[in-house]
C-alpha cells in the first residue's frame, strides 16, 4: 500500500505540474487547464503548474474584494471555496497524504537518514491561525489607499511558492533578479528552515503551518471517505502509534484532525483488522474479511 501511495503522490505531482515546455518558453503555463483547482498546495506561479493553487487564489480574491465590488463584480471566493470544500467533504486529509506535492516533498526529505525528532503537539494549532489570519483576515483588512490587500501567506510564508515558483522563475527570467530583496531572503530562510526540519521531523509544514491542511482538517469527522476503528477488534496494543508519521494514537482518536490518512496503521501495523476504510458508513476495506483485506461492497455486508 505504501508503494501504491508513493506512486499516487508521484502521479499527482505530474498531473498538477504537467507543463514541461517552460525551459524553452521561459514562462509559466497559461492554458485553460489553469481554471482547475489543485487539490494540494501547488504554487500556480510554478512554471510547470497546470492548475491553480486554492490558497493563493483565495487570498488574491479576498485582497481585491473591494476593488471587484466597486467594479460591479462579486468575487468573494465562492468558486475556490466550493472546489476545495467538495474535495474536503469527500476526501478530507486523504489529499494531504496522497495528492499534495509539498507533502510528498517533505516525505522524501524525511527518508534522509538522520536522528528523528517529534513535533510539540501545541504547534498544530498554528496552522489554524495561519489559515484564519494570513489567508482570510489580513488580506481582507489590511489594504492600501486604493483598497487593494495582499496575499499575506504567499508573500511572507509559503515555502512551496519559494521552491516551485521563486527559485525557478528567478533562474528563468533575468529581469526578475533585480527585484530580489529582503522579502525573498525571508521566504528563502523559511523554505530552507522547513526543508531542514523535514529531514528530522515528519511533515513539519503540514502539521504546523499549512493552511490548506488546516482547511481539510475541519472535515476529518465528516469526510465521506475515512478510516474507521473497529473497537471490538482493537486490543489496544499501540502498534498503530509507532508507524504513524504524524504521531497520532489512532485507537484513542480515530477522527484526529492531524491524520493525513496515509493508511500505514491499517496496512502495516494492525494485525487484528481493527482499522478499515469506510465510505459514508459502509466498510470498504479491512475487518470482517480477514487478512486478505479485499474490497467489500455494501450489499455484501448484509451477509456477514
Amino acid at each position: 500500500m505504501e508503494r501504491a501511495r508513493k506512486w499516487v503522490q508521484g502521479v499527482w505531482f505530474f498531473l498538477v505540474n504537467g507543463y514541461w515546455a517552460f525551459p524553452w518558453t521561459r514562462t509559466i503555463y497559461k492554458g485553460p487547464m489553469k481554471v482547475v483547482c489543485s487539490p494540494g498546495l501547488n504554487c500556480y506561479s510554478c512554471p510547470s503548474s497546470t492548475a491553480f493553487c486554492p490558497i493563493g487564489t483565495l487570498q488574491q480574491l479576498l485582497a481585491n474584494i473591494r476593488f471587484s465590488i466597486q467594479s460591479g463584480q462579486h468575487y468573494f471566493g465562492a468558486f475556490v471555496l466550493g472546489s476545495i470544500g467538495m474535495l474536503g467533504a469527500v476526501f478530507g486529509r486523504f489529499i494531504c497524504g496522497w495528492a499534495c506535492p509539498f507533502g510528498f516533498f517533505q516525505e522524501l526529505l524525511h527518508k534522509i537518514p538522520s536522528r528523528k525528532l517529534s513535533i510539540p503537539d501545541q504547534l498544530r494549532w498554528l496552522k489554524y491561525a495561519v489559515l484564519l489570519l494570513l489567508v482570510i483576515v489580513f488580506p481582507l483588512i489590511f489594504v492600501s489607499n486604493s483598497g487593494m490587500g495582499q496575499p499575506w501567506f504567499c508573500k511572507y510564508v509559503c515555502p512551496a511558492g519559494t521552491f516551485q515558483a521563486g527559485i525557478p522563475m528567478l533562474l528563468l527570467d533575468p529581469n526578475l533578479r533585480g527585484a530580489v530583496g529582503w522579502l525573498f531572503v525571508n521566504k528563502l530562510i523559511i523554505a530552507f528552515g522547513f526543508t531542514t526540519w523535514s529531514v528530522f521531523a515528519s511533515r513539519p509544514f503540514c502539521r504546523t503551518a499549512c493552511p490548506l491542511g488546516a482547511f481539510y482538517a475541519l472535515f476529518s469527522r465528516f469526510q465521506l471517505i475515512r478510516l474507521q476503528l473497529n473497537k471490538d477488534n482493537c486490543t489496544g496494543c499501540g502498534v498503530c502509534h509507532k508507524v504513524c508519521p504524524v504521531d497520532i494514537k489512532f485507537n484513542e482518536n480515530p477522527n484526529s484532525c492531524e491524520c493525513v490518512n496515509c493508511m500505514k496503521c491499517m496496512t502495516e501495523a494492525c494485525a487484528f483488522d481493527a482499522i478499515s476504510v469506510e465510505v459514508a458508513g459502509f466498510p470498504m476495506f479491512g475487518p470482517d474479511l480477514g487478512k486478505t483485506k479485499k474490497c467489500i461492497w455494501p450489499r455484501k455486508i448484509q451477509k456477514i
Binding site: G161, A179, N186
Partner: peptide, 8 residues
Amino acid sequence: ICLSCIGI
C-alpha cells in the same frame, strides 16, 4: 506570474 508568491 504572482510576484508575491515568488517573494519579490
